[in-house]
Design a protein around this nucleic acid. Structure first.
Lengths: 200, 200
DNA sequence: AATTTACGAAACGGCACCGTTGCGTATCGG
DNA sequence: CCGATACGCAACGGTGCCGTTTCGTAAATT
């Protein structure tokens, strides 16, 4: 053995192309980003878009769902840094990250899929949720729990209800708000409305 | 002329079957209610489900989109009666209607379509929005404006922000809340959280 | 009764995609 | 160089749906 990678023998023959693999996943995300539902994605369209033979796709994934799972899993969810100075500031930081993401076509369409196809592709969505949704929800939950502990939030506050109010409101604007980008100060206004309530 | 209906001459020949028409629309809504996206609906599946020949469908609608528009338009949106005694009570009535609807598979799937396919079928969705979504939003808006006028809500409240907080929170529970039916007192809790805020 | 239109069923040619196979070429280890 | 594997490409037979047409029958008007 001349070259050996961490104890695993490299199989003989030409190695699989990393470039092709990335191109396939990029093409998949592109098509999803253009509004394709999972059921409308065709392997042939992905192969064509990626400049790749169908063989190269089938060699790696046995079916479309597995491919989509892997493609969605590559979407990073970098949570914004939280200053920790106040609950209000941290909430604004989290919600403003949602606002910024909602401006990207790819993120919007992925969200569409997450919301509408979870019944038909439960396996796919379970994995995607764990990867992309759960960390954000957990961050929000942590901020709220910290706020309850510090007295910045009601001691009897239902944490889930708090997350629902905050991210649900942003979700509403994303889908049904005025067309185009969301107002830059939206997160701040939503947080203040949620914190202080609609009554005088 | 022997029998004449309200000034319009009935054309000769066998009249179109009202029963077949309803069966077609029912079948369409059934399939949508089972999780079908618009793009996955096939005329053949609808015809088969309705016990009808494809001819009978094509005679009435020239394409799938027109059929879906008509089918969705038959979905009633009976707004709940508002007591008008207080903003809080009216809001609870409106949000509880959303909660009850979210338990019905057909309503859930229609909502899925409304949220995820609005990019691909803008014409369809525009009409559906006007029919099913806009009246509810308008009712919510009216209650909020009345509350501002009566002093029950902040005088400087952004009406759209208020609707976003209320219906967005319900939306969040519908899609991402705990599985199964929503808690019967959810609307009340959401309204109180929105009215009084998350702070002590 | 004659005419007209609608009905359900079946079949049509066409198309897009399926998943697989064969081909000639490219890229690796030995 | 040799064997092995991956590559892009093209073609395969199969399937499901398209929108249309044909057929025999049913239900209305005149």
């Amino acid at each position: 053995m001349t070259i050996q990678e961490s104890g695993t023998t490299r199989p003989a023959g030409r190695p699989r192309s990393e470039k092709a693999e990335r191109a396939i996943i990029e093409a998949t995300l592109d098509l999803i980003g253009e509004g394709m539902g999972v059921s409308e994605l065709s392997i042939e369209a992905i192969a064509s878009r990626a400049g790749v033979g169908k063989t190269t796709i089938y060699r790696r994934w046995s079916n479309k769902e597995d491919l989509v799972v892997d493609a969605l899993s590559t979407l990073k969810s970098p949570l914004p840094p939280l200053s920790g100075t106040s609950v209000r500031e941290d909430l604004i930081a989290l919600l403003d990250a949602m606002r910024r993401e909602s401006g990207q076509a790819r993120s919007r369409c992925v969200m569409n899929i997450a919301m509408s196809e979870s019944d038909r592709y439960p396996r796919l969505m379970e994995r995607f949720f764990k990867r992309a949704i759960e960390p954000r929800r957990e961050a929000l939950r942590a901020v709220i729990e910290r706020g309850i502990a510090s007295g910045e939030l009601r001691p009897d506050l239902d944490v889930e209800l708090g997350t629902a109010v905050l991210s649900g409101t942003m979700l509403w604007y994303t889908k049904w708000g005025p067309a185009g980008d969301l107002a830059p100060d939206l997160a701040e206004r939503v947080v203040d409305a949620a914190l202080h309530g609609l009554t005088p």
